[in-house]
Amino acid sequence: MSITEEQWIAEAKNGDKDAFAKLVEKYQKPVYSVCYRMLGTPTAAEDAAQETFIRAYQALDRYDPTRSFATWLLSIASNYSIDQLRKMKVTILSMDNEKHAWLAPPANEPSPEKAALEKEKQAQIQSLLADLPEIDRAAVILQYWHNSSYEEIAETLNLSSSAVKSRLFRARRLMAEKWQQMQLVSVPQVNSTAKRIAHETSTI
């Protein structure tokens, strides 16, 4: 952690909201993206990310400075999102595209084709994540998008390393199965059968 960051934390502990706002500025993207992947809509993600920083600010006295501040924040974000999912029983992750305008705005206006492709990708990701149990989903998100190790995921989600491994194993198998189904559905029947035959012959 940088010296300025330690200073911001110290000032925030004394009730300086503006100092904490600098930390919010710095960590908003990882926190927001965890919430977005977990909850699936920008509205829910915004709310969860804001709530994460409010809880972090209120619990700042309990923050252990020997741990990574980012990991601590992501831990609050994941656990809050898990609670929200359980509370609302949101199992289907919907994409509200109207409110989605600000999502990763590229430097140049994307071509309609590219935008459509991005949208398609987001939809695929959310449908892969949708079937996973809440904690497994959080583990997958932390592993893929935040490059967390098993130990870091274990610390973030309050699990043992071996529990994280077995959850990720199960989650990745589930996603692979779903992916295979999605491939079959998205490609026209004849084509896909041909592809499968071609694949099977090539692997024999």
Binding site: E25, Q28, W102, A104, I125
Partner: peptide, 18 residues
């Protein structure tokens, strides 16, 4: 797919809203 997807970002002025 996961690694090439755009990273979701919050709307501008997130910290002011906070």
């Amino acid at each position: 797919l996961f690694r090439t997807s755009p990273v979701p970002e919050p709307a501008p002025d997130f910290s002011y809203r906070w």
